[in-house]
Write a protein that binds this DNA or RNA. Structure first.
Length: 759
DNA sequence: AAAACGCCGGTTTTT
DNA sequence: CCGGCGTTTT
């Protein structure tokens, strides 16, 4: 521990030792940026430059915080637990717990999740008599969220909306939303940071306390911070000016949720006398993999010049394979995993399959299950959005904070206890007229006069009050069991005795297990702490490295992680880059950065796959390989992949103008295949399709077009059974004349037509 | 009050 | 294709 600096390269050492003012560490993928950060903290403590509690260190996930804490503990003996180390949200909740009363909330505030938020917005729309179709709750939520990212309170939002009727309406909704939250003594996810900043701005003594307290502020993954996070750290660092941020603009992938890449691009201008140190040596990947990543990212116009290099060997070449459909793609992946496991000394946990959308995971899971390959799926797991889990957690939230109307409304008649819609509506309007919460209204028995369900309501009230009395006396897990028992929730499920109810019970017990786990790790476990932790937890936080299983997750979730072998599945235009991004350069660039992140997760071996035909959400589309594949030089692919590439190139060359028009007329014809499908799915519109071909002519590798013969019986998805009457070559494709039994004669292009050969 | 039905809409990524 | 939600039915 005397010479922790010896374990660093020159640049990292420089970054650790530089202590005078703002420091920007530009660190490419796998260059040991987290390592530099960790060692810097250890160094600060070891040299006794600051006390642990004077350090504020912000990570992107709770898991990263946990790991960093462990590593610091190993390096220095100081108590790393006293460091303020966590995500922006975790840190701000901690501050809010101390300071939120200044804004008129109490410490027992609840944190609303997305579902609660949407419910509240829908409530408000009803109250304001606005049409949900015109004011899509999801869109409103998004707008409010973006506004909060920029510290725009309803008044500010309104002032900017002037003249725009719709925005003015949204401003009105936002205003009511905010005041409703407060009445519920609840905050939403974005409030966690916004309210913290608001407290700082309104209370100079509070701000100055934290400004002086934190002598050093460190931020990891700085490229993914948003405006308000920037504001927060600017405020906090403005006294001591010791702000050290680490990031890589090439890995900025959260623009869609307000992350502002200019935070990192403009760091030097914003923080005077900032020092910049670049970490450019990659310790993770082979040269081939790094080459691929560099080539891809070089297609982005906006980036800070830096060249990532490695002393690692050249390594194996990249494997690229186009499969017929998503099932074959999954099978190809499992086969390769099996194969590599057999031939090399690898375990399942060395592998990761990364995809763009969670929707892709279903087929992968299916095949992994069938092939008996253990896997763990990160994210997409809707455990917490399951009804039974939401119900139980709503009970907990109501008990913790009885003013939470959203939670109360969810469970007041769950399980059924004869408190119907009319009664609830009456109670709600009484509560509103008296400006109290619904639970508060229930407490006054006079308010129940004339309600048929008054008796039931009183019983409910008593039950909740009893549970509130108990909440601080027993453990959270015990409270859960008590709720399940006293409410009759458990009994009802047991009586139902179906497969579904059994599943639900199982889920509930798993949730109780989560609480037990929490109690083990947290000495001072209170209900509030448990609920906060639940609200802040992310999917990656739960990765259990211990078990030997292949990791399946989105490319976003993979940020910051690394694996020996990585599969990138579904590398297709419209999927990745996503359909919604391909019309704008800026968003494509973000997709490209995501691709860069995905590639650089791999240490030794990279597989890229796509399916020529993919079914998602019920509709099947023919696909075009992702432009990102073209951006990787051919020579980086292995021999087996070359056929795939040659085939594609050949198609490209022969893809002449008249064929474009054929494709176009074919597509607009509504015959055969549904590449467009106007409003739905991941398919590609004719325009983007053609635009794409023009930008980067790509192949259409599809059916085994060579297999068709005149006289063959074939089956078409829409036209049914028919016989091929004529085949004519058309570039690399064939025109098939088919006489269908029920639809007459049609002329179809072989490459675009899904035909089943009947013989 | 609860179950059953049927329609519509959304389906990128998430601390 | 799925879930959510409003409507109708019992």
């Amino acid at each position: 521990m005397d010479n922790i600096l010896d374990e660093l390269n020159d640049k990292q050492k420089e970054a650790v030792e530089y202590l005078d003012g703002p420091l920007l560490i530009l660190a490419g993928a796998g260059s040991g940026k987290t390592r530099a950060l960790t060692y810097k903290i250890a160094y600060l403590l070891q040299k006794d430059i600051v006390k642990p509690y004077q350090i504020l260190a912000i990570t992107f996930t709770n898991k990263a915080a946990r790991e960093m804490k462990e590593r610091i503990l190993k390096l220095v003996k100081e108590d790393a637990n006293d460091i303020w180390l966590g995500t922006f949200h975790a840190i701000c909740v901690r501050i809010l717990k101390r300071e939120i009363e200044k804004l008129g909330y109490t410490r027992d505030f609840n944190i609303f999740d997305e579902q609660d938020k949407t419910k509240l917005i829908k409530d408000i729309l009803k109250r304001l008599d606005l049409d949900e179709k015109q004011y899509n709750p999801g869109y409103i939520a998004y707008e409010i969220s973006r506004a909060k990212d920029e510290m725009k309170l309803p008044e500010k939002y309104l002032s900017e909306a002037m003249g725009d009727y719709r925005k003015e309406k949204i401003a009105e909704i936002y205003k009511v939303y905010q005041s409703d939250l407060k009445k519920n003594n609840a905050i939403d996810f974005d409030d966690i940071i916004m309210l913290t900043v608001q407290i700082f701005l309104d209370n100079s003594e509070v701000l100055s306390y934290y400004q002086n307290k934190f002598k050093y502020i460190l931020v990891d993954e700085y490229q993914d911070t948003n405006k308000i996070q920037f504001l927060l750290i600017s405020l906090l660092s403005s006294v001591n000016k010791n702000i050290c941020v680490v990031g890589d603009e090439s890995q900025s992938i959260y623009g869609f949720r307000g992350a502002d890449i200019s935070n990192i691009l403009n760091f030097e201008e914003t923080f005077k006398n900032a020092k910049v140190i670049k970490l450019e040596e990659n310790y993770r990947s082979t040269k081939n993999i790094l080459d691929a990543a560099n080539n891809v990212i070089n297609n982005n116009k906006s980036k800070i010049e830096k060249k990532l290099w490695t002393q690692n060997g050249i390594g194996e070449k990249i494997n690229y394979k186009t499969l017929q459909n998503e099932y074959e793609e999954a099978e190809y992946i499992t086969e390769n995993i099996d194969d590599i496991c057999k031939k090399e000394k690898k375990t399942y946990s060395d592998f990761a399959v990364l995809f763009r959308t969670n929707a892709q995971s279903r087929v992968l899971e299916e095949v992994f299950l069938r092939e008996s390959i253990p896997y763990r799926l990160i994210g997409g797991l809707k455990f917490y959005s399951r009804k039974e889990i939401k119900d139980l957690s709503s009970y907990l939230k109501l008990i913790h904070n009885p003013n939470d109307n959203i939670s109360l409304k969810r469970i007041i008649n769950e399980p059924k206890r004869g408190i119907g819609e009319t009664a609830l509506q009456k109670l709600e309007s009484i509560a509103r007229s008296k400006d109290v919460s619904i639970f508060e209204a229930i407490k006054d028995t006079e308010n129940l006069n004339g309600l048929r369900s008054a008796g039931n309501i009183i019983q409910f009230r008593q039950m909740i009050c009893d549970l509130i009395d108990k909440k601080d006396k027993i453990k959270v897990s015990e409270l859960m069991l008590e709720i399940l028992d006293k409410t009759g929730y458990k009994n009802e499920l047991e009586m139902e005795n179906t497969k579904e109810s059994e599943d639900r019970l199982e889920n509930i017990m798993e949730y109780v297990g989560v609480a037990l786990e929490f109690e083990k790790e947290n000495a001072e476990n209170s209900l509030g702490e448990f609920l906060d932790a639940q609200a802040l937890i992310s999917d990656v936080d739960n990765i259990d490295e211990g078990q030997s299983a292949v990791t399946l997750m989105t490319m976003h979730s993979a940020k910051g992680l690394e694996f020996e072998v990585v599969f990138l599945a579904g590398m297709e235009e419209g999927l990745f880059p996503s359909k919604r991004s391909i019309d704008e350069d800026e968003t494509v660039e973000e997709e490209r950065r995501l691709c860069y992140v995905a590639i650089t997760r791999a240490k030794q071996k990279l597989f890229i796959t796509n399916a020529s035909k993919r079914t998602i959400y019920g509709s099947t589309t023919y696909t075009i390989p992702s432009r990102f594949i073209d951006e990787i030089p051919d020579e980086l692919f292995d021999e087996i992949s070359q056929d795939n590439i040659t085939l594609r190139k050949k198609k490209e060359k022969n893809f002449l103008d008249d064929e474009y028009s054929q494709v176009k007329s074919f597509l607009s014809n509504d015959e055969g295949f549904n590449i467009n499908s106007k409003s739905s799915s991941f398919g590609i519109s004719v325009d983007s399709f053609l635009k794409n071909i023009n930008i980067a002519p790509t192949k259409i590798t599809t059916n085994n077009i060579d297999l068709y013969e005149v006289g063959m019986s074939v089956k078409h998805k829409k036209f049914g059974v028919g016989k091929i009457t004529k085949i004519e070559a058309e570039g690399d494709d064939y025109k098939l004349d088919i006489s269908f039994e029920n639809y007459g004669n049609k002329r179809l292009m072989a490459a675009y037509t899904p035909l089943e050969i009947l013989k």
